[in-house]
Amino acid sequence: MGCWNERITKEFAKLKQKATEAQPYSGKVGSEDLDNVDMAYRVVADHIRTLSFAIADGSCPGNEGREYVLRRILRRAVRYGTEVLKAEQGFFNGLVKVVVEVMGDFFPELKQHEIKIREIIADEEASFGRTLVKGIEKFKKAIYDTGVVEVPSGVFGVSNVQMYGGFVVHIGSFEGKTGRLSVGDKVICKVNYERRKLIAPNHTCTHMLNFALREILGNHVDQKGSIVLPEKLRFDFSHGKPVKPEDLRKIETIVNEQIKSELDVFSKEARLVDAKHVNGLRAVFGEVYPDPVRVVSIGRKVEDLLANPENEEWLSISAELCGGTHISNTREAKAFALLSEEGIAKGIRRVTAVTTDYAFKAMELASSLEQEVNEASETEGSVLEQVISYICQHI
């Protein structure tokens, strides 16, 4: 199958390049494939072959057993195609004809069921497309400013900002009953700096948390999502089992040590290819980054990282591709406290944390709870039951 799979890969690459002027398939693997484009070509080619044969044999993507495996295979291919190769939604079912052209003479069942194969994949692909759009809208890493836009006819309150179709869309409403915004209007934009002041330390601590997780749990840890709010931060990552309490304490300690070290936070734009060469630099798989891209590093200047990208020292600092708002020095975060750790899907864990005065408050509550538990350990019988009930009600 390897030779045929290579032919499918090359045929798909030709179609993809012709349609979108994407870079051609070059067969790079591992560290040479910096942008994962060649890997994406191979994933899409392998998965369309697998699905075509499975459907020809009578299987179909679904919710249980091997049918669910096929659904996962299809969705993985679609994500690689749309997010890495920038293929249009609905591209995947069109590749069935490539499989038939390359392998149909050897496997006549492919030609016999070509229409059926394409229709099933098209239906599943469309369904996933709708699910994916809703999921991205709901869980997209959103670290945006809010504020107001003053226009001649009133004030437009901005409650959200999103990227859509290459444009920065400001979402909100006019304050009061009147208000109108027209092309050519001169406006004054005013950022809500009070909100930004709360968001920034949480965002910077998200970077330090990402670094600490890898330090303690291992390099298999990859970011799977995050939300940064004024009152807390939430971080999802790949890890196959619950994090041990002692490891959580180590992770929390690393972040607090970086806060106490009063490290400067640096940011600078760089060419995407140069940034990705930096040893230990973290990026979110599937995220579409601009070129040039903004690099945020903690404790070392970005210029130092770019000047000597292979330096092993960079493995001991936090460096990420990021366009969000940050504090200028880690001391501004004041403190960091983990609130919870839980599983949200197979192989995916989630931690929630707080910073600044919220962290101090969490630490005080934890200390108080520990004292109550210690006192409860000295009681027994009905009194112990009452104490336990009281503690549970106040957790």
Results as ranks from 00 to 15, higher is better:
85 L>R: 05
184 G>V: 00
34 L>Q: 11
183 V>D: 10
244 K>I: 03
249 R>S: 13
188 I>L: 13
144 Y>F: 10
373 V>C: 07
273 V>S: 14
3 C>M: 14
266 F>C: 11
157 G>K: 11
66 R>C: 03
4 W>V: 03
10 K>H: 12
137 E>W: 06
246 E>S: 05
235 F>S: 00
49 R>V: 14
196 R>D: 03
120 I>K: 00
7 R>T: 09
159 S>H: 09
38 D>T: 00
114 E>A: 10
262 E>Q: 13
12 F>I: 15
251 I>N: 03
92 F>V: 00
182 S>E: 15
46 D>A: 11
297 S>V: 01
21 E>G: 14
132 L>D: 12
243 V>L: 03
195 R>G: 09
184 G>W: 01
230 P>L: 00
193 Y>S: 14
37 V>G: 08
161 V>A: 02
248 L>Y: 07
138 K>C: 05
338 L>Y: 09
310 E>F: 02
349 R>L: 12
215 E>D: 10
348 I>V: 13
209 L>D: 05
61 P>G: 09
174 F>Q: 08
41 Y>E: 05
58 G>Q: 05
338 L>E: 04
11 E>R: 12
376 A>P: 00
145 D>N: 14
290 P>T: 00
384 L>H: 10
183 V>K: 15
299 G>C: 10
354 V>M: 01
330 T>G: 06
324 G>M: 07
309 P>N: 04
388 I>F: 02
29 V>Q: 13
329 N>Q: 06
324 G>C: 10
55 I>D: 06
337 A>F: 10
162 Q>R: 15
133 V>Q: 07
125 E>P: 02
341 E>P: 10
24 P>L: 08
175 E>Y: 07
160 N>I: 07
288 V>T: 13
272 L>S: 04
97 K>A: 14
234 R>A: 01
377 S>T: 15
12 F>A: 15
275 A>V: 07
38 D>Q: 01
165 G>A: 02
51 L>G: 01
16 K>Q: 15
344 I>N: 02
170 H>Q: 03
199 I>H: 03
190 K>W: 02
177 K>G: 09
69 V>G: 08
11 E>V: 00
20 T>Y: 04
244 K>L: 14
227 I>H: 11
351 V>F: 04
263 L>H: 02
205 C>K: 04
7 R>V: 14
329 N>W: 00
42 R>K: 08
369 L>A: 03
112 Q>N: 03
1 M>Q: 12
259 I>R: 07
189 C>V: 15
226 S>M: 05
229 L>H: 11
273 V>F: 05
269 E>A: 06
172 G>I: 03
70 L>P: 07
234 R>N: 03
177 K>Y: 07
130 R>L: 09
230 P>H: 02
175 E>A: 04
23 Q>S: 15
216 I>D: 04
269 E>Y: 14
386 Q>K: 14
161 V>I: 10
376 A>K: 06
247 D>M: 10
285 F>T: 06
